[in-house]
Nucleic acid binder design. Structure first.
Lengths: 311, 311
DNA sequence: CACGAAATGAAAGATATTTTCGTCGCGGGC
DNA sequence: GCCCGCGACGAAAATATCTTTCATTTCGTG
């Protein structure tokens, strides 16, 4: 909330008014009548194109408006700033605000002829949205239960194929780093074969966006029947995979389209869930995890070339 | 391209990159590791309190940070501005944005005893931040160039090990779906062996957060020397990997800590870049990509069970 | 422990901003 | 019609600010 009223009062009267933040255009209009011709030209230019004027020096603005430096400074003073330098700063701020203000045009879908910059903005926005939705929709009770099971598991198997297979591997990599026995399976046959080995106290995690991927459901079913604790990470809490899941972790389903396949948006949510699982387990097993984390970090150090500088 | 890292900054490093508008905090974090101690102090002060620093002259900021004017100017240059004056302008803009926008949310680190709900919230927030920063800091010119190269490539190799290896696979999966010849390499030896086969018109992409992973740099160097178009996706635009990269795509570096390893935050940014590459290529090759996309979707349909409820 | 490269700050040099001061144009009074 | 005073206005000096140069210090290395 700005102190608009006070600003207008102060500026019209005495100098004690603090510099205007964003209500500059209004101020120009308010004060224009009391300005001389040259000053009006300057004020107009400033109100007209804040961004452009912010890029100009006092001399540049003087030339642009066909006046002199002194006039520019006088105008800045009249607008309530100590000098042109500060007006320019405010101008830059105003420009930035205007710029960011006209950004919400990214609700549209990605089109074939979108410029690359729009693609970046839209993708980033969408993934942010997916994260927010997933975080909001995540059942922390289920999550906590899954974490507890993982932290005490003798062994953990993770199933995922296609894009979800990478998420499964990501989780596995992380769990291994903190000393858990985890394995990712993307081969359906091997997954089932291994699932048979699971028993009570073990954990099986299935990752599938649709919740209908047979290759992932099968091993989870086997694990479930062998008495393992089963977890499903899926975008469809009512899908078949949940039949065999003790704990269901739901990921958000973002808009998808031709140029934005399901694999893309679902992956973001899945990874957030996976990260939560990892951090949760790391917390529970902190005494064991902390040394393991630094140990795995150290082990990699020699594979990195020397950087120019650094701590 | 020269093999002297310093040249990357000296030659065409600064001019082609437009000064950051609001992506300043991200830029600071990205470049901070490559800064000297004094410059880091300046950068920290700037990122810490944009509004406050915008009010300071170069001398003031030098005194505040206990350094000299020269160092302040050097830092401004490193951040991509012609001089301190312009940095200050951008700072004012950033301050205005922050003020008008939401309050800069408290970014406490994840603690061992955080309840699980906090973990979810913090992780989600952090990853959202990483996305925003990466999107803001991404050089769309470089991105477009990389897309063009990919769209016309005879063959594409992607290198990545560890967590970045999964990102490499993600990209490969996507590119394959739209009919490109792409392959991900996580075995350093095989990667080099294959890189030898590359030639002009081919594309090689290295994915490494630190930019110092020898296992990834080597194949990229070979590809570079064989005349292939090389792309580096890294969080450190001044790192060794960029020596052999025709196009550098920078991902944002988020804060990391014991419970939040680098692999976690870097992955989010890398995936955004990968998604952008994919969509960009899909746009360019739309006529070929569209049928390929639906074809691969159809091919998977039979592997999904009927859903219990719903369509 | 000396060497050289990189980092740093003091001060000179270049720009930008602010102030000073004189000119000019415009009404109004003589 | 001519003179006078008032204020706008700009040229240029004065000042503040920014940039560059260069000598010194620091740090890693052989």
């Amino acid at each position: 909330m700005t102190n608009d009223v006070k600003e207008i009062f102060g500026s019209a009267g005495a100098p004690p008014a603090p510099p205007a933040p964003a209500a500059l255009a209004a101020k120009v209009r308010t004060l224009a009548p009391s300005m001389t011709r040259s000053m009006q030209r300057v004020a107009e230019a400033v109100a007209d194109d804040p961004a452009g004027c912010a890029a100009l020096t006092v001399t540049g603005l003087a030339e642009l408006t066909g006046t002199s430096e002194a006039t520019v400074v006088r105008t800045a003073r009249l607008l309530g700033y100590p000098g042109y330098r500060d007006l320019r700063l405010a101008l830059a701020g105003l420009a930035a605000q205007q710029q960011s203000g006209r950004a919400p045009a990214i609700t549209t879908d990605i089109a074939v002829d979108d410029p690359i910059a729009d693609v970046v903005a839209k993708l980033a926005y969408d993934e942010q949205q997916t994260l927010a939705d997933t975080a909001a929709g995540l059942d922390t009770v289920q999550l906590a239960a899954a974490v507890t099971a993982l932290a005490g598991a003798r062994r953990t198997d993770v199933y995922g194929v296609g894009a979800s297979g990478l998420v499964a591997q990501d989780l596995t990599q992380k769990l291994l780093r903190i000393g858990l026995m985890a394995h990712a399976h993307s081969d359906p046959h091997l997954a089932v074969t291994n699932a048979v080995q699971l028993r009570s106290g073990d954990v099986a995690i299935a990752i599938t966006h649709s919740g209908t991927t047979g290759d992932v459901i099968e091993p989870l079913r086997v694990a479930f029947e062998r008495g393992a604790t089963t977890v499903a990470v899926t975008g469809r809490p009512d899908s078949p995979v949940t039949q065999y899941a003790d704990h269901v972790l739901t990921t958000s389903t973002a808009r998808e389209s031709e140029l934005r396949p399901a694999a893309m948006s679902s992956r973001t949510g899945q990874l957030l869930v996976v990260d939560c699982l990892f951090v949760g387990v790391a917390q529970r097993t902190y005494d064991a995890a902390a040394p393991a984390l630094s140990a795995s970090y150290e082990a990699l150090a020699h594979r990195h070339r020397a950087t120019r500088r650094g701590p």
